[in-house]
């Protein structure tokens, strides 16, 4: 049974989500990939304000295809998350509570998630056509020069994700594989 979650996600709420929870996210999320993360972290490090409120925010690692006429957004599945590992601990410290991507995360990200209270969700990589149907509006917030990599504000409805790493360090990439392999032994 899926957990329905309305965003923004407070740190307290983030701590209640457990690795393995299938979730449907609704509300506002922001998009950012490598290039946007670099700029956001540069702002933080120079003490300047961020272009959107990072407190309790969820960031989706996605660079969508251009919208066709009549579409809200093009195909919009997750990109591989480890490329954001250098930046995520800083954004988590600043208030980010949710990350949506796919693939493994580094130990520094997981430490920051435990310390501050944040969740790492995975969406199905390569299911961009399906996932875009959950996006109800999309507008560019900043960094339009980055094209697909610009920061967008999305309103999503029942975006299907799985909590892979939780705020206690539980990791479905490890437990999911071992549970399957154990099932073969019994």
């Amino acid at each position: 049974m899926e957990k329905r979650i309305t965003l923004p996600l407070t740190r307290e709420m983030a701590r209640t989500i457990k690795s393995g929870d299938a979730c449907l996210l609704s509300g506002v999320i922001y998009t950012a990939r490598d290039a946007a993360h670099k700029r956001l972290v540069e702002l933080v490090e120079s003490g300047k304000p961020l272009p959107f409120d990072i407190k309790d925010a969820t960031i989706y690692y996605v660079g969508p295809t251009p919208a066709k006429p009549g579409q809200v957004i093009g195909s919009a599945g997750p990109t591989t998350s480890y490329r954001m590992d250098a930046y995520s601990p800083i954004l988590i410290r600043e208030g980010e509570t949710g990350m949506i991507g796919k693939g493994k995360r580094g130990s520094e990200v997981i430490s920051a998630m435990k310390e501050y209270g944040a969740v790492y969700f995975a969406a199905i990589g390569g299911a961009g056509a399906l996932l875009s149907s959950c996006i109800k509006s999309a507008e560019i917030v900043c960094y339009e020069d980055l094209g697909a990599e610009a920061v967008r504000r999305l309103v999503v409805e029942d975006l299907p994700v799985v909590a892979v790493i939780d705020s206690e360090g539980g990791n479905l990439y490890e437990t999911g594989v071992s549970a399957y392999l154990d099932s073969l032994k019994s």
Partner: peptide, 14 residues
């Protein structure tokens, strides 16, 4: 997903 992509002529993956 690939069914939607083929039907709507949209990219399978972004």
């Amino acid at each position: 997903n690939y069914g939607i992509a083929e039907r709507d002529n949209v990219p399978i993956c972004q």
